[in-house]
Every structure is written in C-alpha cells, then in structure tokens.
C-alpha cells in the first residue's frame, strides 16, 4: 500500500481525533438529554419539597434530598480535615522518604477500591461492630474513607504548586514550620484545596453502593445522625429496580444530574481562577 503524504495523514488524523471527541461529547450529551427528557416533566416545586409517599410511587423526594445532603456533609466534614492534614504532612513535613511513599501508595490503593467493597467494610465495622446501625453516621464515615484519596491527592497538588520561595522567605524571617504552613502555604493553596473538596462533594452525591449497605434505605425524614436515610442515588436505584415508579425514578435522576453538573461547573470555575492566579 502506498503511504499517505504527510498532509493527507495530518487531515486523516485530525478527522479521526475530531470524531473521537465528538463521540465522547455525544455520549455525555445523550445521557444528560435522555435523563432530563424523562425526568424534567416530573420535576416541580412539590416534587422537591414533598416527602415520598406510598414507597416513592407518589409524593416527592424531599427526605432523600435531605439524606443526600446530610451524608455528603458529614462525609466532607470528616474527610476534609483528615485529607488536608495528611497532604500537609506528606508535602511539608517529610523529605519524601519510604514512609511518605508507603502512605501515598496506600492512599492510591484506597482510591482504586470499588465502592461496594467500602460499603461492605462500612457495614461490618460501623453498622455491626461499632453498633452505629444503618445510619447517617455509618454512611458518612464510610463515604469519608472513599473520598480521602481524592482530597489528599488534590490538596497535595495544590500545596506543591505554592512557589518554594514563599517557604524559604518565611523560614528566613524566623517562622516555624507551622507558621509557614498556616500563614503562607495554606492561603496560597486554598483555592486548589477547595476545588478538590468540591469535586469530592460531587462524587459523594452520586455514591450509591457504599451507602446502601451503611445508611440503609429508610424513607422517613432523618432526625439525627443516628437515623437511617435514603439518599437520592439509592432512591433512584430502588424505584427503578423494584419497578415502583419509573417516572419518579427519572425525576430523582434529573435532580441528581443537575446537582452534579452544577458542582462540576463550580469546580471548573474555581480551578480556572486558581490557575490564573499562578500563571
């Protein structure tokens, strides 16, 4: 076969890459369109503010929105300080020796574990061993462990991108390491850290497998962190799987998708601002 000339080759490559991009974007748009077309007609103020009735066949999804928010909030409340603290330790307090590598490797492994395994782990540890039962507490703790790797990784990147000169100068003026971290490094890294945390909120909102084992699936309005709850993702799963109400399932899915899209757009916006600040 005769070889194509470089110009033709370039054209073919461009067309090929363009097609791949189109397919990727197309699939994304199709999913969003598919969900929204079925889900949007169901949405109304009442759907958002009424509690589910009749196992979810009628009524709204208010208690599941509350459940989602409560679970994500608790998960972030636990994971953010742990993750940011670990990232600070790894970047500022170690020379990058074997211990650092072990911790970092551990965090990476944590990121690769399927969420259903986290669910099972959370069930055994929090629900049964520690006797927290199916509750927001068990679900939030489980989800926190899932989110840790992301938060550690993004915080580490943000902290590493702070110019080393800031640290040198701070030390040269007689500051301690902690003063340097809190007064110079963290303020500069904050937008990047927040980006990672917001990204994690997005992930936690959609998480299903880890919560179904740990937070249960009660449709009642949760009253404390010891209440069982059913987040939107689990509600959607149950409605669809048990064939309770497909239209309400799509309505729930639409709310989920819109929330996650909103959060991703916010992340994108934050990230852009962060990048602009340091370039």
């Amino acid at each position: 076969m005769k070889r194509l000339g470089p110009r033709v080759e370039q054209k073919v490559a461009q067309a090929g890459l363009w097609t791949m991009t189109l397919v990727t974007v197309g699939v994304l748009l199709f999913i969003i369109f598919f969900i929204l077309r079925r889900g949007l007609p169901v949405l109304s103020l009442e759907f958002l503010t009424a509690n589910p009735a009749d196992m979810g066949k009628s009524g709204g999804i208010f208690s599941t929105i509350v459940g989602t928010v409560a679970l994500s909030f608790l998960a972030i409340l636990i994971a953010a300080p742990l993750g940011v603290g670990t990232a600070i330790y790894l970047t500022e307090y170690t020379w990058g020796g074997p211990l650092t590598r072990v911790i970092r490797f551990g965090a990476e492994c944590l990121a690769g574990i399927p969420s259903i395994i986290f669910g099972l782990f959370g069930f055994i540890l929090f629900v049964t061993k520690l006797k927290f039962g199916w509750s927001i507490l068990s679900g939030g703790l489980t989800m926190a462990f899932m989110l840790l790797p992301t938060i550690i990784r993004t915080s580490e990147e943000a902290i590493k991108s702070v110019p080393p000169a800031y640290r040198t100068v701070s030390f040269s003026l007689g500051s301690t390491k902690w003063q340097t971290v809190t007064r110079v490094v963290l303020p500069s890294a904050l937008p990047g850290i927040v980006t990672g945390i917001v990204l994690s909120v997005g992930r936690s909102i959609g998480e299903t497998a880890a919560t179904i084992f740990t937070a249960g699936s009660a449709l009642r309005m949760p009253t404390s962190i010891f209440s069982s709850t059913r987040p939107m993702s689990v509600h959607f799963y149950i409605l669809a799987r048990e064939g309770i109400s497909m239209s309400n399932a799509y309505g729930t899915a639409a709310v989920l998708i819109i929330a996650i899209l909103g959060i991703n757009i916010l992340t994108y916006y934050l990230m852009n601002r962060f990048i602009r600040k340091y370039s």
């Binding site: 000169a165 800031y166 040198t168 100068v169 701070s170 030390f171 003026l173 600040k277």
Partner: peptide, 30 residues
C-alpha cells in the same frame, strides 16, 4: 532567634502574595 538576628535578601524579589502592609509586618507577626 538566629534567623531573626541574621536575615536574608534573595536573588529574586519574593514578596508574599499579600498586601504591602501584610508583607512588611509578616516577620513581626510571626
């Protein structure tokens, strides 16, 4: 205390990304 007594000026000007005020009083606050 040593670094407070023996201060340093670097090759590149390297103010912190803070206000003029916060830069000058950084060491004092520390």
């Amino acid at each position: 205390a040593l670094r407070k007594k023996v201060g340093m000026v670097f090759q590149r000007p390297n103010p912190f990304p803070l206000s003029v005020f916060d830069n000058v009083v950084y060491g004092l606050r520390v």
